[in-house]
Design a protein around this nucleic acid. Structure first.
Lengths: 247, 247
DNA sequence: AAGTGGTCTAGACCACAGC
DNA sequence: CTGTGGTCTAGACCACTTG
């Protein structure tokens, strides 16, 4: 059936073929694809070659592989939208999602603390030596399922002081407000994307390399003194940040 | 050497082991790892198992595999920062990068046009039936290397009108300004992340599943009439959007 | 028990880069 | 030419889910 005349590997030909069959509607959303053995027999290739093709479609987000059950055309779940007001420090409110339930399981759980690395982005952004900084790692799971991994860098002396408040409020800005006695404002925020590494992937329950939305930046006091650098790695398939430019 | 006592597969144990060796500084940035055959012999596993481990590290962004040469600890290239002014329609200016050279190769190349899909995000965002909409796909390559894939949805009648101007200016907002005679403003923009699919991956020169930063939104006329919906898929490892909240 | 995907092995051949 | 990673096969065993 499939043959390798030129330079396109069999597994890629198979992946593209299956993608076209899905695009053509042969398999609708949620429909089961033939099993790996069936595909191997049908296209006269080894099962490992089929698995390589399936891996492509899986990483591309086209299919969902369920162990012991089968592979299915992925049904896209709508992303939760978080509306960001560029001109205020107001707390971001998810749109369409129920407001966080105070009785619910802890929204942000502290994973641990660590010293700051030399030469990292945090050291550069805060313009302070690594020795004076400490790191706090947390896991955000608003509905019980992990959504984001966060790392905060701040003055090492503040870390033990702020930890209890962070555990209680599950919000570093609020915790710092308590401890310092004045509000916390955005200095800047940046958006980029990265792959889930071997540490973040199991925490978020995604495969290694899963695309993550990175939101990072510096928060400061009202007079502009930098307080902390934060780097969130967020399941970008589950959440998006929306900026409205018209009132 | 490695053994599978419990539930952690060999390839994952090996991947974590190599990751730790890299983190510990045994292999610095840019350093070559042992070859697949050497690792297979050293850990007494099959070469395919080594390759599976390498695939994990590759997707995680830890290593870079160069065919015919070897595998190396990845050297992170600094991201280009694009500063976005939330309150103006001013053209985004990359920071640290040279300004686009008008003599340079075309920055944005039109890949093709297509009718709009039913039930897509564009139809919802523009609140118009799919039959009235058309799509333009472009490839953005500011320095010759592909950086982003863009899809624009707009009134089907406008597509042929705006195409020549888009080819010339490489900027849909500018092209529409020419054609319509009034400026184009942001309505809203959103950030999320997604995996490169089988179509975008070869266009961008990245493997399937590579994390992409998605920036999408609606632009409108000064009186708020929606003009087009745009969805950019950007190499999130090469670029980031920065929002400054303090003047 | 039967069927699914997940892991692992042994061995082969190929394409690519550098000497 | 040699060594590297890339592809492919045949066959085996395991873990998981469902009936």
């Amino acid at each position: 059936m499939l043959q390798r005349h030129g330079t396109v590997p069999l597994y890629l030909q198979l992946a593209q073929r299956l993608q076209r069959r899905i695009d053509a509607g042969e398999f609708g959303a949620g429909a089961a694809l033939p099993s790996e053995s069936e595909l191997a027999a049908h296209y006269s290739v080894n099962r490992l070659t089929v698995r390589q093709a399936m891996g492509e479609l899986d990483r591309a987000g086209t299919i969902e592989i369920r162990r012991g059950i089968g592979t299915f055309v992925r049904t896209r779940v709508p992303q939760v939208s978080v509306h960001v007001n560029p001109r205020s420090q107001a707390v971001d409110v998810p749109d369409g999602a129920p407001p966080p339930d105070p009785r619910a399981a802890r929204v942000e759980r502290v994973l641990g603390t660590a010293p700051a690395d030399e030469g990292g982005e945090a050291v550069r952004a805060l313009a302070r030596p690594a020795a004076e900084l400490g790191r706090i790692d947390t896991l955000v799971a608003p509905d019980g399922r992990p959504l984001a991994v966060c790392s905060y860098w701040l003055a090492a002396a503040l870390v033990p002081e702020v930890l209890p408040a962070l555990e209680a409020t599950a919000n570093l800005a609020a915790a710092l407000h308590q401890v310092l006695g004045h509000p916390v404002e955005y200095d800047w925020r940046a958006f980029s994307a990265t792959a889930a590494d071997l540490t973040d992937a199991p925490l978020l329950g995604v495969p290694t390399g899963h695309p993550l939305l990175v939101r990072e930046g510096v928060s400061c006091t009202p007079d502009g003194t930098p307080l902390y650098f934060v780097r969130r790695r967020i399941r970008g398939d589950a959440l998006r940040f929306v900026l409205h430019y018209r009132d």
